[in-house]
Computed example of a mutant assay.
Amino acid sequence: MPRNNSNLHSMPLKRKLSIVSVAFVIITMYWLSRPQNPNKRVSLSQNEDKESICQQSNRKPQIEEFHFPRASPVPNFVQGPGLEHWHDENVTDATCRFLRHSKDAKHLPHIMQQIYRCFSWWLRNPEKQHYFLWPPVKDTSPFVTGFLQTLQQVFRVEFVDTREGHSIVYPLVNYSFDAADYTGGYQVRSPGDFAYLQQTIRERHPEWPAMAGCQGPHGHLSKLPQPRITILNREVSSGRHLYNAVALKEILASQLHARVQVVDSFDGASFEQQVQTMQQTDVLISPHGAQLVSIPFLPQCAHVYEIFPQHYFVPRFYGSLTGAAGLFYHAVDTGVQNLWHDTLEQRQKARAQHVCLPIESIYETLVPALNETIHHWQHCCYHHKKPRLPSAI
């Protein structure tokens, strides 16, 4: 009996110790995850770039969230006689033709507009042999080269240069930004197509690190996940270079519950390197440019912040790709007046301009927007459902 009484007397103490231990763990987690120094502000003199464009602190960028279609009926993104034979059991092939003579067919973003649509078409025909009518295209980027190799090696797409004996469809791409039906942007059948693409590629690379974001256990509100923010820049020679990317990183790291990194550019990066960078990103901040064609490789629940130069504002282009991937899109307009020029020459000149987010505007505009994004991302992580994948091919 005394031994039992001793145990009874010791139980309250054990409970107290357990409560103290749990509280200590929670406080420690919060302390480690807090912003480094929320009261420290980076001044204009600390900006690593002295370009005049970065000193236009009177320009406050406007941030707007856009919602684009997540899915599209098949006839909306491909056309041609092959559609007539979609359910014909006697037709054993599903062939998509690359339009070599279409506008900007040598330009990476427009090349991928066609290829993504063809990929989605092949996924709609899992029992048929997949062919790609692909004429030789010179000077393709590492991303296109790697994606084409993936189509051949992973998805068993055969490349042919003849149209004889094939049931052909070709991408329905309208390059006019005035089109109201989004055919000028990116379209696939559903976000599940991109999820299947990402999952299949990862299965071929078990050595790759785990994806960012929502890939771990969900629903435990005692855990406060930190998103990974990637500032993906462009080379100065490419135009639309973000001048104060390092200052932006310092501010975001000090103000947000997030891990922040800067990637100088994707110039020369292989397809695999670009995919892995995206898979390690929950919130992508990047100027308008071809590097954004890899958006479909971002993890589920990811957000995209696309920064536009002054007088050039086309959120529907990569915004449509973000929507097709089932992700969330925000346009950052750095010039609040005269958003669009009338002539092609004026638009091309505006499109080539570099961009800068004024320091004070980062604190006043971007940081509050990203705080909301982080809360949205955390909520999505706890409640998201896996996208419905297409049938295996």
Score class of each variant (00 low, 15 high):
Trp86Arg: 14
Asp193Pro: 03
Arg41Cys: 00
Ser6Ala: 13
Trp208Val: 11
Ile229Asn: 04
Gln56Arg: 15
Leu123Ser: 08
Ile393Arg: 02
Lys138Asp: 14
Lys103Ser: 14
Arg388Ser: 07
His311Tyr: 11
His376Tyr: 07
Gly165Arg: 06
Gly213Val: 10
Pro217Leu: 12
Val74His: 06
Leu148Glu: 09
Val144Asn: 04
Ile19Val: 14
Lys349His: 14
Thr28Trp: 10
Phe159Trp: 04
Val20Pro: 00
Ile53Met: 04
Val188His: 08
Ser72Trp: 15
Phe297Val: 04
Arg59Gly: 06
Gly185Phe: 13
Lys386Gly: 00
Arg59His: 14
Gln280Thr: 01
Cys96Asp: 05
Pro387Lys: 07
His220Asp: 14
Val367Phe: 05
His85Ile: 09
Gln226Thr: 11
Arg3Glu: 14
Gln129Glu: 12
Glu89Thr: 15
Pro368Ser: 04
Met112Tyr: 05
Arg163Pro: 01
Ser265Asn: 11
Gln226Cys: 01
Ser6Met: 09
Ser33Pro: 02
Leu13His: 08
Asn338Pro: 03
Gln215Ser: 14
Arg59Pro: 00
Ser167Ile: 09
Leu224Ala: 11
Gly268Phe: 10
Pro390Ser: 04
Ser167Phe: 14
Asp267Trp: 07
Glu164Pro: 00
Phe132His: 08
Phe313Ala: 06
Gln62His: 11
Ile201Met: 13
Phe194Glu: 02
Gln56Lys: 13
Ser391Arg: 13
Pro217Lys: 13
Phe297Ser: 04
Glu372Asn: 15
Lys106Asn: 15
Thr28Tyr: 10
Ser167Tyr: 11
Asn37His: 02
Ile285Pro: 01
Gln353Lys: 09
Leu44Tyr: 01
Leu221Trp: 09
Pro217Gly: 07
Tyr30Ser: 03
Val304Glu: 03
